[in-house]
Design a protein around this nucleic acid. Sequence first.
DNA 1: ATATACAGGGACAAAAAACGTCCCGATCAA
DNA 2: TTGATCGGGACGTTTTTTGTCCCTGTATAT
Lengths: 341, 341
Amino acid sequence: MRRLLELQQKLLPDLTRVLRERYMLLRSIYHLQPIGRRGLAQAMNTTERILRSEVELLKETGLLTVTAAGMQLSGEGQQVLDDMEPLVGELFGLRDLAEGLQKKLGIPEVIVVQGDADQSPWVKAELGRVGARVLKQAIQEGDIVAVTGGTSIASVANHLTPSASFKHVQFVPARGGLGERVELQANTLAAAMAAKTGATYRLLHVPDRLHPEALQTLLKEPQVQDVLALLQNTRIVLHGIGDAIAMARRRNYSEEELADLAEAGAVSEAFGYYFNEAGETVHRMPTIGLQLEEVHKAETVLSIAGGESKAKAILSFAKQSCQNVLITDEGAARALLSTRL
Amino acid sequence: MRRLLELQQKLLPDLTRVLRERYMLLRSIYHLQPIGRRGLAQAMNTTERILRSEVELLKETGLLTVTAAGMQLSGEGQQVLDDMEPLVGELFGLRDLAEGLQKKLGIPEVIVVQGDADQSPWVKAELGRVGARVLKQAIQEGDIVAVTGGTSIASVANHLTPSASFKHVQFVPARGGLGERVELQANTLAAAMAAKTGATYRLLHVPDRLHPEALQTLLKEPQVQDVLALLQNTRIVLHGIGDAIAMARRRNYSEEELADLAEAGAVSEAFGYYFNEAGETVHRMPTIGLQLEEVHKAETVLSIAGGESKAKAILSFAKQSCQNVLITDEGAARALLSTRL
DNA sequence: ATATACAGGGACAAAAAACGTCCCGATCAA
DNA sequence: TTGATCGGGACGTTTTTTGTCCCTGTATAT
């Protein structure tokens, strides 16, 4: 494929530019639909007229339909967008980035999506879309999937679709309450994923900020024990990676606690663990759930994190060397590759 | 590849049109170089200005160089033209034509080049170029290659290049003098091919229009016997297919003989044999050389014929069902496919 | 050597396409 | 019902493409 592209580019030098632009257009429409000309023009920061020409062309090709509510992708347009996925790597040079990361971080598989989650809101959605696709491919009957909270994982939940392969799958929250907003909590997302796919789910109801003694009591509860037993047999871990300080702040840590974390050198966060640059655990959220050893035992660990601001955190967590697949974005990838080892 | 092209076409509807045009441009330059803007514009019947824009673009891409003598392909341009070969089948729908012919005529491999040899002079050159390529692929050490005369085969000779694989190959004329112009005779072409490739060759010197008795005498000549013995071990036959009447006329048949041929239903001609629509031999040139049985015995029979006017002849000869590869052009292919079985 | 024919490149007006901008009636959501 | 937003029409302006002609240099044949 690469060869064909190079050949075509010699005969039609701005082929890739056009393909890139059209791809971004389709993708934007997909994420914003139904959307009007003006709104879209603003979102893609281009002019209304120029966008109009593009849209008219895509309309003639039948890739998008135009209603009074705005424009949206047709079935074929959706199909084309999906079919383009492998092409995108070449068009934006993402394949090279992915290979570079793979080598640098020692992760078996790396997928890089175009854009920067810090700058463009839809990039998070893209991460979710790709994450959902990868999860669907990895899933096997009877799997136990441990999921964490966070915006990236929430995005995956959003893009999951019903499928027979999820029939006997169980989604289990990786950890109990972590003090996040409810729509981003692991419990919520496990349930949401189950609902979207047709799988089943379990919950881990652990109130926030419990005293250690109360925690011990809870641990004896049959329901809780049940879930913990399931977590020990986790085959797939689906988790996000957070910036340590940002996560702590989101979880309403006091200024004092934040200072402690910073002093300890915490850089990244995942399933309630905080890691320093060397990948060592420097702090744990006071709750119960998936243990780090169990993550290492899992067959497939799917990490999702994007945005330039996440680069340091990704690098830190990669030290765990337990990941099988990393899904990230261009912004993070470039930042990672430009830092010295 | 096909899939990628379809995808691209949805995003850039006139991609294939542009690729087609640029390909034809490169090809025309290749066949006419060095050529000036005006001459080329006339040859491709387009305007000077529009061609100029195209040329400027290709020049910037480095595909052609511009000298005071005119423009010509650069090394890279040459390379691109070669690399495009597989693409051309898709762009011009030639793959479908080839498959159709393969089915209809029962020939294992069919290659169709773009254009019509009756209309555009360079199509014959293209047939030769492709023929040379195929021959080069088919050749093995120690092969004996029987070649016929004719313009198509002459074109193959023109496009052959030196190669180590031709080291111990012998080119042998399929038949003795057949009354054609010397530059199209089998003898000449066998020698030419040997010279171009670095192979060796043998000649079959048989004067035109010999009496049967004289022929018998000649047959006893050691030199002749030698060549005939070689022909019995022919592994590759490289031959053209002619329209029966046209060939006879080119060979200065009398009006009376022509009438006889026509009455006998002669349609096609190859290595001195004339066949009717059913593929039956209705006449033979009075000379010596490769026998029809030997053609059937050969491992590879490479037939080359193009132009709409050759369609009937190709169909007739295909009845022999001894061909392995047919190289023809769009004009002939379309005509063949549009005739009832 | 010289004439000639043909090469590429420059120039420029005409034509066409692309673009910026504004408006309008329809439609949907509040 | 109201207000915001939708797609499509309209139109002048800008940019690009195209047609046309000319000029100078260079091969080639005489």
